[in-house]
Amino acid sequence: MSEISFRTKIYIGENSLDRLTRIKAERIFIVTDPFIEQSGMVAEVTNRLDHMDNEYHIFSDIVPDPPIETVAAGVKAIQDFNPSVMIAIGGGSAIDAAKAMKDFSLKLSPQQREMKFIAIPTTSGTGTEVTKFSVITDEANHVKHPLVADGLLPDEAILDPTLVKSVPQAVTADTGMDVLTHAIEAYVSTKANDFSDAFAEKAVRLIFDFLPRCYKDGNDVEAREKVHHASCLAGMAFNMVGLGINHSIAHVCGAQFHIPHGRMNALLLTQVIEFNAELRGFTSGGYSAAAMKYAQLSKIIGAAPATTNTRLGVNSLLHHINQLKRELHMPVTLRTCGITKEQLLAASEAICEAALNDGCTATNPRIPTGKDIESIIEKII
């Protein structure tokens, strides 16, 4: 028996930020990053809170891949302010950090009152506004720690497409490929079901249809909105059923080599699909379940006709992913990200061990060995 529930209330469309005008007489802790604060984007939140008898405190010390020390500072600020509402506005780092701050503050201070948690993403990538996951970085040991708990789920998410219009091209590409990876990994997860498949399929279609448009024209509000929705849909999918080794490896390599998470996922994606599909190991017994689902995705996005067999379907999906990466001018090797073969070899053993122990590995459709992880990474050097 499986349980499926959707705790987060989602507000979508232009002007969805106006939902904040309903908040009255609350103490509000706002988590964001320096750019969001200095660009005036945080004012889109505070302007809607002013004149409603609200008090708020802005914590804007968030940096990419938030370290444990930042979370600890946020917990201290929460304890001092004692808020009744938390609002996180920013990319995945801001929302993930806010999740960890909220969780730890409640655990460390029994007297801390429960906070309503509202997540407002300003990038379209992580889907963290609807997931029970948070990723925090241990900088000293170059390790990312995924936290998983139902208490990390935001109560509300606001998907206002006007907030993502100014996202730079490179970030649009990185985060968009993160969405695609979320959806594909959820689709072939060992826990996948009809509900997660529906979310994942729609997310994949939206990414192929609208991500190139976002990349070419950031002011294309329709495309921005569709990719924003795709990010949320993919988040809902993997929140139900988990991810796979694409993320396991990306967590480790991203922390080790300081490569943006979505970019690292994109580097690995086709290699992981080839590993999971096991086309070279095809026998008369049939293709793997993962291979057949990859082939199904190629039909869903119109990359292959319905009559295409499994092998051709998987190869067609791989071709269209590579084509999408070219359109987005994504790097295709670690070398183009400034990582040498010597650096990779020096860290290889630690990367393989950490990837195997990562929580995402448990739902990968094919059980990997350390050698398998090593082989996948070597193919992108």
Rank of each mutant, 00 (worst) to 15 (best):
residue 139 E to A: 10
residue 139 E to M: 04
residue 139 E to T: 09
residue 140 A to N: 06
residue 140 A to D: 01
residue 140 A to S: 08
residue 140 A to M: 01
residue 141 N to A: 00
residue 141 N to K: 15
residue 141 N to G: 07
residue 141 N to D: 14
residue 142 H to C: 03
residue 142 H to R: 00
residue 142 H to G: 02
residue 142 H to N: 12
residue 142 H to T: 14
residue 143 V to Q: 03
residue 143 V to K: 12
residue 143 V to L: 15
residue 144 K to M: 04
residue 144 K to D: 08
residue 144 K to F: 10
residue 144 K to E: 05
residue 144 K to A: 07
residue 145 H to M: 13
residue 145 H to D: 01
residue 145 H to S: 09
residue 145 H to V: 09
residue 146 P to Q: 03
residue 146 P to L: 12
residue 146 P to R: 08
residue 146 P to D: 00
residue 146 P to G: 08
residue 147 L to P: 14
residue 147 L to E: 11
residue 147 L to K: 13
residue 147 L to A: 05
residue 148 V to I: 13
residue 149 A to L: 07
residue 149 A to C: 00
residue 149 A to M: 10
residue 149 A to Q: 01
residue 149 A to V: 12
residue 149 A to I: 13
residue 149 A to G: 09
residue 150 D to R: 06
residue 150 D to C: 06
residue 150 D to N: 12
residue 151 G to E: 15
residue 151 G to P: 01
residue 151 G to Y: 01
residue 151 G to R: 01
residue 152 L to Q: 01
residue 152 L to C: 04
residue 152 L to P: 05
residue 153 L to M: 14
residue 153 L to I: 15
residue 153 L to K: 13
residue 153 L to A: 10
residue 153 L to N: 09
residue 153 L to T: 14
residue 153 L to E: 11
residue 154 P to Q: 08
residue 154 P to E: 04
residue 154 P to S: 01
residue 154 P to F: 11
residue 154 P to N: 06
residue 155 D to F: 12
residue 155 D to R: 10
residue 155 D to N: 01
residue 155 D to W: 12
residue 155 D to V: 14
residue 156 E to C: 09
residue 156 E to Y: 00
residue 156 E to A: 02
residue 156 E to M: 10
residue 156 E to W: 15
residue 156 E to I: 15
residue 156 E to G: 06
residue 156 E to S: 03
residue 157 A to I: 11
residue 157 A to T: 06
residue 157 A to C: 08
residue 158 I to K: 05
residue 158 I to N: 03
residue 158 I to P: 03
residue 159 L to D: 11
residue 159 L to H: 12
residue 159 L to T: 10
residue 159 L to V: 04
residue 159 L to C: 04
residue 160 D to S: 08
residue 160 D to P: 13
residue 160 D to W: 07
residue 160 D to G: 02
residue 160 D to M: 11
residue 161 P to N: 04
residue 161 P to G: 04
residue 161 P to V: 13
residue 162 T to Y: 07
residue 162 T to D: 08
residue 163 L to S: 00
residue 163 L to V: 09
residue 163 L to E: 14
residue 163 L to W: 07
residue 163 L to N: 01
residue 164 V to S: 00
residue 164 V to K: 12
residue 164 V to C: 00
residue 164 V to T: 14
residue 165 K to Y: 07
residue 165 K to Q: 12
residue 166 S to A: 11
residue 166 S to R: 08
residue 166 S to P: 03
residue 166 S to T: 15
residue 166 S to H: 07
residue 167 V to Y: 01
residue 167 V to Q: 02
residue 167 V to P: 04
residue 168 P to V: 05
residue 168 P to S: 03
residue 168 P to T: 05
residue 168 P to A: 02
residue 169 Q to S: 14
residue 169 Q to N: 06
residue 169 Q to Y: 10
residue 169 Q to V: 13
residue 170 A to T: 15
residue 170 A to H: 12
residue 170 A to M: 10
residue 171 V to W: 05
residue 171 V to H: 07
residue 171 V to G: 03
residue 171 V to C: 02
residue 171 V to T: 06
residue 171 V to I: 15
residue 171 V to R: 06
residue 172 T to E: 02
residue 172 T to F: 04
residue 172 T to N: 07
residue 173 A to V: 09
residue 173 A to S: 04
residue 173 A to G: 03
residue 173 A to W: 02
residue 173 A to Q: 11
residue 173 A to E: 03
residue 173 A to P: 10
